[in-house]
């Protein structure tokens, strides 16, 4: 089942996510990318209802882009996080006319010149927290424990990736419904980008 987690290191933030698209007991796909590159310096890792996830993350991405086109300056990570939270909160109260809230949990990582790297936790009932490390889904039971034990302030990229790998190993060995493949993306002063895949079965 779903595993999305992220952490802040020295001059960068990263998000790792499983890449399984499942329905009931069936795996449809094992290379589904659940981390969106929101803009040049932001990552949006999302878990939840598959349709909601695609719709909502894309809606946020397009609005962030629109802001940049209109105003010539990008949103800060904090502003984007608050905007995202606001949109979730608005949708949360919309049960009428066939509408329903989005079931998506979000980790938003970004890098700003003034504040450096940051990570925001936003869940489907529009909770917003600024964190150093965070996780969603069944994998969070293991990745959070792993990060509690091994996370340090100001970790280097190497140390952080090592921790991510520890989390993935723990998930794969302890979670009954562990997903096989993971993707890791990072964001630092040079921008947001894919870092690596951790695949234990070939992508289907």
């Amino acid at each position: 089942m779903e595993c999305v987690f992220g952490l802040v290191g020295d001059g960068f933030a990263l998000i790792a996510a499983d890449s399984s698209a499942v329905n009931s007991i069936l795996v449809h796909k094992s290379n589904e990318d659940k981390i969106m590159v929101l803009d040049s310096h932001k990552l949006l890792g999302a878990s939840g209802e598959a349709g909601d996830r695609a719709q909502f993350t894309e809606y946020i991405q397009k609005n962030v882009h629109l802001y940049q086109f209109r105003n010539g300056i990008p949103l800060t990570t904090a502003a984007a996080a608050n905007f995202t939270r606001g949109e979730l909160a608005t949708a949360l109260r919309k049960f009428c006319f066939g509408q329903s809230p989005y079931f998506v949990n979000i980790l938003l990582a970004g890098y700003d010149k003034e504040v450096g790297p940051s990570l925001y936790y936003i869940d489907y009932i529009a909770t917003l927290h600024k964190l150093d490390k965070g996780a969603f889904g069944y994998g969070s039971y293991f990745s959070l424990s792993m990060m509690d034990r091994h996370y340090r302030n100001g970790m280097s990229l190497e140390q952080a990736i090592d921790l991510v790998d520890k989390c993935i190993i723990e998930i794969r060995s302890r979670l009954v419904v562990a997903p096989p493949n993971f993707v890791i993306k990072i964001v630092d002063q040079n921008g947001a980008r894919e870092y690596a895949w951790r695949e234990s079965i070939p992508s289907v």
Partner: peptide
Amino acid sequence: TFAYQEPMPVEQ
């Protein structure tokens, strides 16, 4: 400020 929890840029 409500939407972004940040002061509005002047030009905007």
